[in-house]
């Protein structure tokens, strides 16, 4: 039996998620043993032709060219897994979705006529069918290994989409929102990081994006009514790595449009 093949693709992104794969130092040999790493330019110059059993796609769609390329990637992939905040929500670069992109291009580039870019940064699932999404900025390497393992066994990957608070409390971390009044996004954020920021005494930034059924409005009300945050701070709170995720976008727009 031939080994299943793995391809890793990059769109608009910082490479941090791909590097999480190389970061699996202890498990790298096991991964290489289980799959044929057929197309992973960050790791090897050898690129084997498709189709590929599993494709990991990093990055968001920000150019007309990438909008075409993702279709080709989809066509060559058995299972397509979008990895990271860029691929699942448009990433930090989705801040452009709230601004005037042409204005930026004109201001930044000496010859803006050579820049071919889209008005928005969008998630992979806005363009092609995505079989599984792995959240985080960057993703968690143990979650990545779990997803690969599940796929190799022919199972649908099962990762919790509940709140960060769940793992925060399981880990025995003392809540920074309750003890310090910090605006923590944990209650509305998708778990997977093992409550990394609260473990270091810092409020959750929401880098894994919205959890299932997030009640962002209840959290935002608490922040403004009891923790003293201003509207401008609320917009910033929801506009970071997952600014483009629908639940976070809606909440930040509520404050931008003074609609709360």
């Amino acid at each position: 039996m031939t080994k299943p093949s793995l391809a890793v693709w990059k769109f608009a992104s910082c490479d941090g998620c791909q590097l999480s794969i190389l970061d699996c130092e202890d498990e790298l040999l096991a991964i290489a043993g289980a799959v044929d790493i057929a197309n992973f330019p960050e790791a090897s110059r050898e690129v084997k032709p498709g189709p590929y059993t599993v494709s990991l796609v990093e990055g968001s769609i920000t150019t007309p060219h990438d909008r075409e390329r993702i279709q080709e990637v989809r066509a060559q992939s058995g299972v397509l897994v979008a990895i990271g905040a860029c691929a699942t929500a448009g990433g930090i670069q989705a801040l452009r979705n709230f601004s005037d992109v042409k204005g930026f291009t004109d201001a930044v580039y000496a010859s803006p006529q050579y820049i071919s870019t889209l008005e928005t940064s969008t998630a992979i699932s806005d363009h092609v069918k995505v079989d599984f999404e792995l959240h985080g900025c960057p993703i968690d390497k143990y979650q990545l290994i779990r997803v690969l393992t599940d796929l190799l066994q022919g199972r649908t990957p099962l990762l919790p989409s509940e709140s960060v608070c769940l793992d925060c409390k399981r880990a025995g971390v003392v809540c920074v929102m309750v003890t310090k009044g910090e605006p923590c996004l944990g209650p509305v954020t998708h778990t997977g990081c093992n409550a990394l920021c609260p473990s270091y005494n810092r409020a959750c930034f929401g880098c894994f994006g919205p959890k299932n059924t997030p009640n962002t409005t209840a959290l935002a009300d608490r922040c403004t009514e009891n923790l003293g945050l201003e509207d401008e701070q609320m917009i910033r709170l929801f506009r970071t790595f997952n600014a483009g995720a629908p639940a976070f976008r809606t909440e930040s727009e509520r404050y931008e449009n003074q609609n709360h």
Binding site: E27, A30, I31, G33, A34, I145, R146, L148, T149, L152, Q153, L158, E162, S163, C165, L166, K169, R170, C175, G186, P187, V188, T213, P214, N215, A218, L219
Partner: peptide, 24 residues
Amino acid sequence: MNCTNCTMVCPTCFCFEVEDHNDL
């Protein structure tokens, strides 16, 4: 917010889930 904090800190809540994992 269905964040689970109340049930996690409650000294009597006893619910649990069971998962199977395997290696590569």
